[in-house]
Design a protein around this nucleic acid. Structure first.
Length: 436
RNA sequence: GCCCCGGUGGUCUAGCGGUCUAUGAUCCCGGCCUGUCGAGCCGGGUGCUCGGGUUCGAAUCCCGACCGGGGCGCCA
């Protein structure tokens, strides 16, 4: 015997036979002469029945169980059309493998709810609810789909350092840590490393990894620690060359979720729609026009504020576009590594990928010309000396390249219409929450 | 960081100056019940975030701290 059996493997050959099953006691119903245990496993629940007449001691033991205790039950599998699964386990012995303390800090099978904060304080109990775990089945399918899609396109999955001596954009949004007496930072993005790889011959890479931002943001779509799906592609002639990889990966994720996570989607009562490829692309200046017709005036050169982003999202949704690119942002609001447009350098070869009015990804073609890059670093008020390790990659032959950074947690949030990004993260960390 | 709102048994709530030795549900404990599956019925249990203040009297009003929720900024 290697594992306790999953209740879902119980079938006709087991009927009338002995079986040993384990799980969490979700509910105890003592009817006086007969008691029922509802025992939960990963895939659902099954019923254990104990009769006083048959075994008084066992009946008492079963009736006194504390909910959520882990038990192993040996008994006879008995067909019974009255029971939900069509069978029940008529107990002959019962072992408490791990008792639960009472009362529970969080209701699980109760009729009352719990506040988000209480839930995250007791996240493991919260995750015992199937609809919570369903989110993470979906998330797993999403990650697997990203990988398999890009693997087929000749991408290499890479793992870049998460502990760094300098930040990606040199900003103040880095978490500082002590590195044997020296200053070090938690990576806020694999940006510089993945670009450096473009000069090596690893010309199509992606990474699924944590990123850390010390921004004191307090919204339903920000956390301090999130999972970033980054891609970088070399030998492009224009930014749009790598769009198919990103939109293809996103489409693949939605398609895989629709086919491989059907029961989870049912539990969560959502039906994500597949987009039509290629995705709609709206240049920034056109976006401003659309916003103007909706009575919102954004000064050319300014970033879109949250309200505008939402309005634009609604306008696009009306035309059937849940997912779309906003392209050619002003150079001024983009980081130093962005490639300006040759004919009008005040705009750039950059984009944001929007999903249901929220930003999922941003990226673009990168500046691969050494002199231009150094000039841009200075222009942004940064010191090129701090980027020497990065600039080195551009000094000895760097192919034209571009890529994206994509928020996995945010994507799962929007995909499943979750009210808060924290719902898409097992143990979310934000400005105030660091435990668990 | 700024703006709004809020903190009542383990959990979720009602109450918003005296009628509160605080409501209801859930939960927990005890009892009854042999087919429950939101089990039912009876009895019991646990609470006003903290510190100041106003008042004859504060869960209730005011101030502060701490904690939380929503929005904005920023971004994935």
């Amino acid at each position: 015997m290697a594992f306790f059996r999953a209740f879902s493997t119980i079938g006709p050959p087991d009927h009338g036979k002995e079986a040993s099953l384990a799980g969490w006691v979700e509910d105890v119903r003592n009817l006086g002469g007969i008691a029922f245990l509802i025992v939960r496993q990963r895939g659902g629940t099954f019923q254990v029945t104990a009769k006083k007449k048959a075994d008084g001691a066992l009946f008492n033991q079963a009736s006194k169980l504390v909910r959520e205790s882990v038990v192993a039950v040996r008994g006879t599998v008995q067909l019974n059309p009255q029971v939900r699964n069509g069978w029940e386990l008529v107990a002959t012995s019962l072992d408490v493998l791990s008792p639960a303390a009472a009362p529970l800090p969080l209701p699980i099978a109760d009729k009352v709810g719990a506040e988000v904060d209480t839930r995250f304080d007791n996240r493991v109990l919260d995750l015992r609810k199937p609809e919570r775990r369903a989110i993470f089945h979906v998330r797993s399918v999403v990650a697997a789909a990203f990988r398999s899609y890009l693997d087929r396109q000749g991408f290499v999955e890479v793992h870049t350092p998460k502990l760094a001596g300098a930040g990606a954009e040199g900003g103040a949004t880095l978490f500082e840590t002590n590195y044997f007496g020296r200053k070090a930072f938690l990576s806020q993005s694999p940006q510089l490393y993945k670009q450096m790889l473009m000069s090596t011959g690893l010309d199509r890479v992606y990474e699924l990894a944590p990123a850390f931002r010390a921004e004191p943001s307090d919204t339903v779509r920000h956390v301090t620690e999130f999972t970033s799906f980054d891609g970088e592609v070399a030998w492009i002639e224009r930014m749009e060359d790598f769009f198919p990889f990103l939109e293809g990966a996103v489409d693949a994720a939605i398609e895989h979720v629709r086919t491989e996570a059907k029961s989870d989607l049912e539990l969560l009562q959502v039906e994500p729609r597949r987009p039509k490829l290629p995705l709609k692309r709206i240049p920034y200046t056109e976006g401003l026009e659309i916003l103007r017709t909706h009575g919102r005036r954004i000064r050319d050169g300014d970033d879109l504020d949250t309200e505008s982003e939402k309005i634009l999202g609604q306008a696009m949704a009306k035309d059937g576009h849940e997912l779309y690119f906003i392209t050619e942002y002003p150079s001024g609001i983009k980081p130093f590594y962005v490639m300006p447009k040759a004919e009008e350098p005040e705009y750039s070869h950059s984009f944001d990928l929007e999903y249901k009015g929220d930003e999922m990804a941003s990226g673009g073609q990168r500046e691969h010309r050494y002199d231009h890059l150094v000039a841009k670093i200075k222009e942004k008020g940064l010191n090129p000396e701090n980027f020497e390790f990065y600039l080195k990659a551009f000094r000895y032959g760097m192919p034209p390249h571009g890529g994206w950074g994509f928020g996995v947690d945010r994507f799962v949030q929007k995909l499943l219409d979750l009210p808060n990004i924290r719902e898409a993260i097992l143990f979310p960390h934000d400005r105030i929450r660091l435990v668990p």
